[in-house]
Nucleic acid binder design. Structure first.
Length: 555
RNA sequence: GCGCCCGUAGCUCAGUGGAUAGAGCGCCUGACUACGAAUCAGGAGGUCUGAGGUUCAAAUCCUCACGGGCGCACCA
């Protein structure tokens, strides 16, 4: 169902088109733009069509706009109360307030589904995110990726896409061997051995001691033995699965759950790496040089060709990952989105080359880089050293500031810009913290509705023409814009549109609330304002819901 | 050296080729004996890094320069 604003834009665009045709001016439909102006005072909707075509029809845009006003006014009289030619040739449209007020009924009818749409048309989207190595605790940037990925998935869903969230577990390969080695050494320590010095590059983190202890508990028959890679791999995989479960639990606490977990080791066991190499060879995209096998990714715009099989016969990291990504398409996803850390952006070229080599259009794989997060307190960067006892993990961040503020802060910024996370601000449980500003609006509405229900038994039909105060109208218009925001967030992959919009909505409600009494002696007015408030609550619920942030009834 | 991201108010950041560039924090002034003051009303604060270009119109697109971050392995 088209949103109220969509239908207004459509009617206006058609009226303009008809006017132009009646003057024998031929303009492509999509050049007739009708949009929300960037600032108030320029009408509710605006079109710059006269500026665009002025030159080709050899008329001053402003004059053209003025010529159009009378006919458009007649055509659109049920929808628009005022049209003016403005500035250098804009057409500004002011929508009828009662017509706009009907948005409240739209919201009532659709409830939590208001703003949702079907334009995704069932397209299947896979979003892979976090995919942290299971060899340590989740760090802060994983939290950002988790919040963004989870929210994007919901944004796609409410726009009619079928969306799955996936976590890829790198539980095979060199890192796991090294991790296993660390666990082995910790086991030896628990048995009384002294490891000094600790070998270079072998996970020194103390959390490995817990894993060693855990392993001994699960394997009471452990006997000290001469270590080899087989043993290291065994221990490494044990540790990886242990940490993966811990990560899963923390992510769940953070409000993020995945439809699927894919294990690198499973892919290797199934022979997926061999299969992808054969496939690329069969397609002619593999060359041999210096005893190694190379993927000729430069054919598809990559900077350099990439090694698949090293001269010692082992695979590079790229091979299982390529197999994994090929599998995503085989599983039937129309669109695959990866959220990667900033340290992986050298990886984008080869992955996109792979997609094309396999015969898919490059744009079916989108890679979004989630930029670094710096923690800041009192204008000072918090060093995230493992030594200093400062926070390093997502778990500690959640404990320190809470899930809602953490998610809000991560979602507030464009994902691909580095961000400073202001701990001082996030910790504030009061007026300075923007997430509470929105939640407070919801709590206020809940409070009003509670009181209204206590004093009035029955709802009755409300009268949209009663909502005519400027602050009411402002609120109505913002409510009407919500479907635009939801759709735009999907198109631009921009979760940050939601917190921005919700802040604006909450501000409009707070202003309205301070200025006008909702529960009054006038039953009709009370009914109208209660209904408006309820509609506002639905939209806050919807928006915060998409962001994975709670909507408290009291604070 | 090559590639990617970024440069907007004191700070952190929004900004879909459109008109007078916005928000939060911080700062200043005011508002609670009716629904929640975690709120509201108002104010100060800008060479959108710089220079060219495209366009009726540029923070936005293009080129170059400057500044910051990151990536450029037979590592993962």
């Amino acid at each position: 169902m088209a949103s109220r604003l969509d239908s207004a834009r459509g009617s206006i665009a058609r009226a303009i088109q008809a006017w132009l045709q009646s003057r024998d001016i031929d303009v492509d439909e999509d050049r007739v733009d009708v949009g929300v102006p960037s600032e108030e005072g320029h009408g509710d909707l605006t079109s710059s069509i006269c500026l665009k075509i002025g030159k080709t029809v050899r008329q001053a845009p402003r004059q053209l706009a003025e010529d159009m006003v009378p006919e458009l006014t007649r055509q659109l009289q049920n929808l628009v109360t005022h049209i003016e030619a403005a500035g250098p040739g804009f057409l500004n449209f002011t929508l009828s307030t009662p017509w706009l007020a009907e948005v409240v009924n739209d919201i009532r009818a659709q409830g939590i589904n208001y703003g949702h749409s079907t334009w995704g048309n069932g397209e299947r989207v896979l979003i892979e995110f976090v995919s942290a190595n299971p060899t340590g605790p989740l760090v802060i940037v994983s939290g950002r990726a988790a919040a963004v990925g989870d929210t994007l998935a919901r944004i796609f869903r409410v726009n009619g896409f079928v969306t799955d969230r996936e976590f890829y577990v790198n539980n095979a390969g060199n890192q796991i061997i090294k991790f296993g080695q660390a666990i082995y050494l910790r086991i030896r320590e628990l048995e009384g051995a002294k490891i000094d010095p600790w070998p270079e590059g072998i996970y020194p983190g103390e959390y490995v001691i817990d894993i060693a202890r855990e392993y001994l508990e699960h394997n009471p028959n452990w006997v000290p033995q001469e270590p080899d890679d087989g043993l290291y791999a065994l221990l490494g995989q044990f540790g990886a699965e242990h940490l993966r479960r811990v990560q899963e639990e923390i992510l769940r606490r953070f409000g993020v759950e995945f439809e699927s977990w894919i294990y690198e080791k499973d892919l290797r066991d199934q022979g997926a790496p061999e299969a992808i190499i054969e496939r690329l060879e069969a397609l002619g995209w593999v060359k041999e040089e210096g005893g190694a096998k190379w993927f000729v990714s430069t054919r598809f715009g990559d900077d350099k060709d990439r090694v698949l099989v090293k001269s010692d016969g082992s695979y590079t990291y790229f091979v299982p990952d390529a197999a994994y990504h090929a599998g995503k398409f085989e599983r039937g996803y129309d669109r695959v989105i990866d959220l990667l850390g900033p340290d992986h952006h050298g990886y984008v070229g080869r992955m996109q080359a792979l997609v094309q080599a396999l015969g898919f259009p490059a744009d079916r794989l989108e890679i979004m880089i989630i930029q670094l997060v710096r923690l800041v307190r009192n204008n000072e960067v918090v060093r995230m050293s493992k030594r200093g006892g400062q926070f390093v993990s997502l778990e500690q961040l959640i404990e320190e500031v809470g899930v809602d503020p953490a998610r809000y802060f991560f979602l507030e910024r464009a994902p691909n810009t580095p961000m400073d996370f202001d701990l001082g601000l996030a910790e504030l449980k009061s007026n300075e913290n923007p997430v509470y500003y929105i939640q407070y609006a919801a709590a206020r509405i809940h409070s009003v509705l509670r009181q209204w229900r206590q004093s009035h038994q029955d709802a009755f039909a409300w009268n949209p023409t009663l909502l005519s105060e400027p602050l009411e109208r402002r609120l109505l218009f913002i409510l009407a814009r919500y479907p635009d925001v939801v759709k735009r967030a999907a198109i631009d992959r921009a979760p940050q549109y939601l917190p921005k919009y919700l802040t604006e909505l909450a501000a409009a409600f707070h202003s309205f609330y301070r200025q006008h009494r909702i529960l009054s002696e006038d039953p009709a007015m009370t009914m109208a304002r209660v209904t408006l408030s309820e509609a506002t609550l639905w939209v806050i619920r919807s928006g915060l819901g998409i962001m994975g942030i709670s909507v408290p009834e009291t604070m």
